[in-house]
Design a binder for these strands. Structure first.
Length: 259
DNA sequence: ATGGCTGCTTTGAGCAGA
């Protein structure tokens, strides 16, 4: 089973990239963040044409998450959950569903803007509530948490740790919360394997960020420690970042052996 | 120090992202 996560920064603009990427990388489940689409506008028909089902939760302008699934392998999602039952939140940042023997969570963590911003307080509370939800499902079906975490958990996930020290994505409260998620029974799939140095999943559109590889690793697949021995690989695909009008994020793919 | 790109918005300057 292959799963991937990709912040597409507008599914309306990026749909051709998503369709092309899935044709070349026919993963079983793709978690998408920042669709920026109301549900009426979700491209259900276009995805079905290439053999993918979709469940989604969107709103105008901001946020929006979706889970796509290959109809000829894992089939349609079941037991779909929108949002965190422990948090009243207008923002569409979470969707979870069952695929085969796995519960897949797709999360778009709040950005936080700046450590002194009210949005930062919201970010920390949002993550705390997510961890509490995941704590409550710890004894159930094995889980995989995919998404844009908007946290660079360690200095090696940052192109210039000195410049980013204390900045949004790199503050200690955020990094503490990333570790708290791992403590809820997960492992960071990417770090289970040997990886190239300076591996990132996001690059600023400005100042030639991608060309200079001035990036952050902020997109993750966290795998339930009870199934971590089934992991066979985890890679970041930089290719779509080279296309015309790319998303600023790259897809991250995980491969899981059958039970 | 600032803004540097991009997408969105009851179309156009301002917000938000990271």
């Amino acid at each position: 089973m292959k799963l991937a996560t990709w912040n597409v920064n507008s599914l309306r603009v990026r749909l051709p990239h998503v369709l092309g990427w899935l044709a070349a990388n026919p993963v079983d489940v793709l978690a998408i963040q920042e669709t920026k689409l109301v549900d009426d506008k979700f491209p259900v028909a276009e995805l079905r044409e290439i053999g993918y089902g979709a469940v989604y939760s969107g709103q105008p302008t901001y946020n929006g998450v979706a889970l796509l699934s290959r109809l000829d392998t894992v089939g349609e999602a079941s037991d779909v959950r929108l949002g965190n039952p422990l948090l009243a939140d207008e923002q569409k940042r979470l969707i979870a569903a069952r695929f085969g023997d796995i519960d897949v969570y797709c999360a778009y963590f709040p950005n936080g803007q700046a450590p002194d911003s009210p949005k930062f307080t919201y970010k920390l509370a949002w993550i705390d509530a997510l961890r509490q939800w995941l704590d409550s499902t710890r004894d159930g079906v094995p889980r995989i948490l995919l998404g844009d975490f908007n946290i660079a958990p360690e200095d090696r996930d940052v192109h210039d740790p000195a410049a980013w020290e204390g900045k949004i994505h790199c503050t200690e409260p955020e990094r503490e919360r990333f570790r708290a998620l791992l403590d809820a029974g997960f492992i960071d799939a990417f770090r289970r394997f040997e990886q190239p140095e300076r591996s990132y999943s996001w690059w600023d559109y400005r100042m030639l960020g991608f060309r200079r590889n001035a990036g952050l690793r902020i997109d993750f697949g966290l795998v339930d420690e009870r199934i971590a021995d089934r992991l066979r690989g985890c890679t970041i695909d930089r290719e779509p970042r080279k296309l015309e009008k790319p998303s600023d994020h790259a897809p991250v793919t995980l491969e899981l052996a059958p039970a």
